[in-house]
């Protein structure tokens, strides 16, 4: 029963993983909406800014982004005389959130596109402003459409948190490496850790399912 003694440190790491997932998913969701809506904005600088953000963060690798923020950004800051050194937690949450937000922006854009032209015409005929139409007509109809894709992204994000162990943040993957180093019991440690990630992913997916059921009630009613 050697493995029970591993659970203490692993649980510590899992707790960090959960927090990282939570913060970066929230940040990513905010960025998704900002950039997804920005891509459809009538103001062209906003459109360009959103498109560049999405392309850059979807087009490069998360690990590169993480290391760039943690190791390269301070150097760039040095060059212009600003202290841009980031705490590992901040760098981790920022990289994860920026990355997942770029993917989420495409989900938001697609969701908004799925709102029918007829709905927008009805809103215009009732003299809603574009902003009112977005918040009161388009988004409430689009969000239930987006949720399954957001659920996949949230699980993706949970998996991606493992990469922050590489900038020595004490998450589950980091603790796993520590315990393995100490015990050399690779098979047990990594089996446990994989199962823990799997369990967290199932819980997260289940939570999104519950959310899906609660926001789209009007879609399931029928005569």
């Amino acid at each position: 029963m050697e493995w029970i003694s591993y659970l203490g440190p692993l649980w510590q790491g899992a707790w960090v993983t959960i927090q990282l997932t939570l913060y970066s998913t929230v940040l990513g969701a905010l960025l998704s909406f900002a950039a997804g809506i920005g891509k459809r904005s009538s103001i062209w600088p906003l459109r360009i800014l959103s498109a560049v953000y999405v392309e850059v963060f979807r087009g490069t690798s998360l690990l590169v982004q993480l290391f760039w923020l943690y190791f390269a950004l301070p150097l760039a800051g040095n060059a212009i005389g600003i202290d841009l050194r980031l705490d590992p937690v901040v760098a981790g949450v920022l990289a994860l959130g920026l990355n997942i937000g770029a993917y989420g922006a495409e989900v938001v854009r697609g969701g908004l596109k799925s709102v029918s032209q007829q709905q927008l015409e009805a809103a215009q005929a009732l003299n809603f402003t574009p902003r009112q139409t977005l918040w009161r007509i388009s988004l409430p109809q689009a969000i239930p459409e987006m949720l399954p894709a957001f659920g996949n992204l949230a699980v993706q994000n949970l998996k991606d948190t493992a990469l922050v162990s590489l900038i020595s943040l004490g998450d589950l993957a980091f603790r796993a490496e520590q315990v393995r180093n100490f015990t050399q019991d690779s098979a047990t440690v990594y089996t446990l850790v994989l199962l823990m990630y799997f369990g967290m992913a199932l819980v997260l997916a289940g939570m999104i399912k519950l959310l899906e059921m609660s926001v789209g009630r009007w879609r399931t009613v029928s005569r």
Binding site: V155, K159, D160, T161, A162, L163, S165, L166, A173, A176, E177, R180, S186, A187, Y190, T191, V193, L194, Y197, F198, A201, L202, A205
Partner: peptide, 18 residues
């Protein structure tokens, strides 16, 4: 499901060490 829901990094370590 298991392969899809667990991190690549940890799967890689598993293969590499186990």
């Amino acid at each position: 499901e298991f392969l899809r829901d667990t991190p690549l990094l940890v799967q890689l370590f598993f293969l590499y060490y186990v």
